[in-house]
Measured scan of single mutants.
Amino acid sequence: MKVIFLQDVKGKGKKGEIKNVPDGYARNFLFKKGLAVEATPANLKELE
């Protein structure tokens, strides 16, 4: 799953980066803790 990092995550990505991460990791950790959002067209547009 492609995500946009909202904060630096040690060993995974830095704020503003767009990266592919495993689905479970994204849903169960990154999204729940507010560290990233899914890289949807709407979210990508907001990032610009």
Rank of each mutant, 00 (worst) to 15 (best):
R27I: 15
V37T: 06
K12N: 08
R27S: 05
G16R: 03
I18W: 02
G24P: 10
L6N: 02
A26M: 06
K10D: 13
E17D: 12
E46N: 13
V9F: 03
A42E: 14
K2T: 14
L30M: 02
A39K: 02
E46D: 13
R27P: 05
K2D: 11
D23W: 12
T40G: 05
K32G: 08
K2A: 11
F5E: 00
P41I: 13
G13T: 03
V9K: 01
L6Y: 03
D8G: 05
F29M: 07
L6A: 02
T40D: 05
K2W: 15
K32Y: 08
G13I: 04
L47Y: 15
G11S: 07
I18F: 03
E17P: 01
N28R: 10
A39I: 05
N28T: 07
N20W: 15
E48T: 14
E46Y: 15
G11N: 09
L6T: 07
K15T: 08
A26S: 04
L44N: 05
V9A: 02
N43Q: 09
L6P: 00
E17M: 06
A42V: 10
K12M: 15
E38L: 12
I18M: 07
T40K: 05
L30R: 00
V37I: 14
E17F: 03
N20M: 15
V21R: 00
N20K: 10
K15Q: 10
L30I: 01
K19G: 08
K33V: 10
K45N: 11
V21F: 09
K33W: 15
K15D: 02
N28H: 12
D23Q: 13
G24N: 13
D8F: 07
L30N: 00
F29Y: 15
K14W: 09
V3T: 01
E38D: 04
P41S: 11
K45G: 09
A26D: 06
T40M: 05
K10A: 13
L35S: 02
A26I: 06
K32A: 14
P41W: 11
R27T: 09
A26W: 09
A39H: 07
G24S: 15
G11F: 07
K45Y: 10
T40Q: 05
L30D: 01
N28K: 11
Q7V: 15
N28W: 11
N43S: 08
I4W: 03
A36V: 05
V21P: 00
K33D: 11
K19S: 07
A26L: 09
L44H: 05
E38Q: 09
L44S: 05
P22H: 09
E46Q: 14
K15V: 08
K32V: 14
K19Y: 07
V37P: 01
P41K: 10
E46F: 14
K19N: 04
D8S: 08
Y25V: 07
V21A: 03
R27V: 12
Y25K: 04
L44K: 06
N43Y: 08
L44D: 04
K45S: 10
F31S: 03
N20Y: 15
Y25E: 07
K14T: 09
F5D: 00
I18T: 06
L35M: 07
L44A: 05
T40R: 05
L6K: 06
Q7H: 13
L6E: 01
K2Q: 12
K15A: 10
L44P: 04
G24Q: 13
A36F: 01
N20L: 14
D8H: 08
L47W: 14
N43D: 06
L44Y: 07
E48F: 12
V3M: 02
K10H: 11
A26G: 04
D8Y: 08
L6R: 06
G11E: 05
L44R: 08
V9S: 01
M1E: 02
L35H: 03
K33M: 15
I18G: 01
Y25R: 04
V37Y: 04
K15W: 04
K14Y: 10
K12F: 15
K15E: 05
K19M: 10
P22I: 06
I18K: 02
K12E: 12
A39G: 03
G24A: 12
L35Q: 03
K12S: 13
E48M: 15
K45H: 11
E38Y: 05
A36Y: 00
I18V: 13
G13P: 01
G34H: 11
A39F: 12
A39W: 13
M1A: 05
G16Y: 09
Y25D: 05
G11I: 02
A36D: 00
D8P: 05
Y25W: 11
L47T: 08
A26K: 03
G16P: 00
N20H: 14
L35I: 06
K10M: 12
K33S: 11
E46W: 15
L30G: 01
Q7S: 09
Y25G: 03
L47D: 06
D23T: 14
F29R: 05
A36L: 02
K10W: 14
K14Q: 09
F29G: 05
T40S: 09
L44Q: 08
A36G: 03
V37W: 05
P22S: 11
T40P: 05
D23P: 13
P41F: 10
F29P: 05
E17L: 03
G11T: 05
A39M: 07
K32M: 13
P41L: 12
I18S: 03
P22R: 08
K12T: 12
F29N: 08
N28L: 11
T40W: 04
D8W: 07
N20F: 15
L30K: 00
K14I: 09
M1V: 14
G16Q: 02
G11W: 07
L44V: 12
G11Q: 05
V21N: 01
K33R: 13
K2M: 15
D8L: 04
L6D: 00
L30T: 00
I4Q: 03
A36R: 00
I18E: 03
A36I: 06
L6M: 08
L44T: 07
K32F: 09
V9P: 00
F31H: 02
L35P: 00
V21W: 02
G34Q: 09
V37F: 04
G16A: 03
N20P: 07
L35E: 01
K10R: 13
A39R: 01
G16K: 02
N28P: 00
G24R: 12
A39Y: 13
D23R: 12
F31N: 02
K2P: 08
N43G: 06
F5I: 01
K19P: 00
Y25P: 04
G16D: 04
T40H: 05
N43H: 09
E38T: 06
K10P: 15
E46V: 14
E38V: 08
I18A: 04
D23S: 14
